[in-house]
């Protein structure tokens, strides 16, 4: 296995997997606690429209997707915050429209030679040095913003109304969170693809949620699950010769099942002595 790391493509894949795991583990923490998972689906699917615009205009597709997804995320936020539409309705309209735009633009282009399958389902082994720089830049911006605004974002996730009443700039914070989410989604497209990116955002944090009693441990577990699953998935996919993105998601699902079982076992262990104690007291 060590000799595999001698290959440049494998080194780049590993670095990309760790960076994306870190990003999605951190952002997923807020996605699960603030219940934004449907927004994650909307943003990831709308990224296809951005990729198509990038292809047509001759711009780096992931860069175009980053800009386009951020705009879509802001529009979803604006429509739902202004009370014009329910959030899920806004997401439903925007993500299908953006996806349709992507398909229409790609079909109009007579000369496209883009690996669409790679964007839809990920191709971590094809990560280039340029992709790594883009990923590193996105990771620095997103992790920096989340780190500096962590206490405000946690308050926002727990109790938005009181956060607003306390004078926190709730709407700008929400848009910062949406922007970070859009950037993380775009970063993860190379690894697991548009269709499966939601798994990296939701499953690691959901696994952490099953086991953690405090937010710090949930955050650590979320990041650890995301990073570990990308590394395991990468090597398993290589040895079994199956798609890396799908393998990473399957590893994530497996880790989630383990976390679910451990969480249930722990809660049962905590509750049982209390029940026994209550019964003992009830006996005269």
């Amino acid at each position: 296995m060590i000799e595999l790391l001698g290959y440049g493509f494998m080194q780049r894949a590993l670095i990309a997997g760790i960076l994306v795991g870190l990003l999605c583990g951190v952002l997923g923490f807020f996605v699960v606690l603030k219940r934004l998972s449907f927004i994650g689906v909307g943003i990831s699917h709308s990224a296809f429209g951005g990729i198509a615009i990038g292809v047509i205009c001759g711009v780096e597709p992931l860069l175009a997707a980053a800009v386009f997804s951020t705009l879509v995320a802001w529009t979803i936020g604006w429509l739902s915050k202004k009370g014009r539409l329910h959030e899920d309705t806004a997401i439903g309209i925007l993500f299908s429209s953006a996806m349709a735009l992507g398909v229409a633009l790609i079909s109009l282009s007579s000369t496209y030679q883009v690996d669409l399958f790679g964007y839809l389902f990920g191709n971590i082994l094809a990560v280039s040095a340029g992709d790594l720089w883009l990923l590193g830049g996105i990771a620095a911006v997103v992790l920096g913003a989340v780190g500096l605004l962590f206490k405000e974002l946690l308050f926002l996730a727990f109790d938005e109304e009181v956060a607003r009443a306390n004078g926190l700039p709730v709407t700008p914070l929400y848009f910062v969170l949406l922007s970070c989410l859009a950037l993380a989604v775009v970063a993860a497209i190379r690894v697991v693809g548009i269709v499966l990116v939601e798994a990296l955002l939701v499953i690691p944090a959901a696994a952490g949620y099953q086991l953690a009693r405090g937010y710090r441990s949930m955050l650590c577990l979320s990041v650890a699950t995301a990073v570990l699953s990308t590394i395991i998935g990468l090597f398993v996919s290589y040895f079994l010769n199956i798609a890396a993105g799908a393998t990473i998601v399957l590893v994530l699902a497996l880790l989630f099942v383990v976390a679910l079982a451990l969480g249930r076992a722990r809660r049962t262990a905590i509750v049982r002595p209390v029940v026994v104690h209550e019964r003992a007291r009830a006996v005269p």
Binding site: L148, L149, E152, D159, N166, R213, G214
Partner: peptide, 27 residues
Amino acid sequence: FDPRFPVSVQDVVMMGRACCLGLFRFP
């Protein structure tokens, strides 16, 4: 609120200090 939201009593009370502290500052 979600009763399983992973915050302790002191975490919740610290949220009340967020506005006093200001953005980008740590407790």
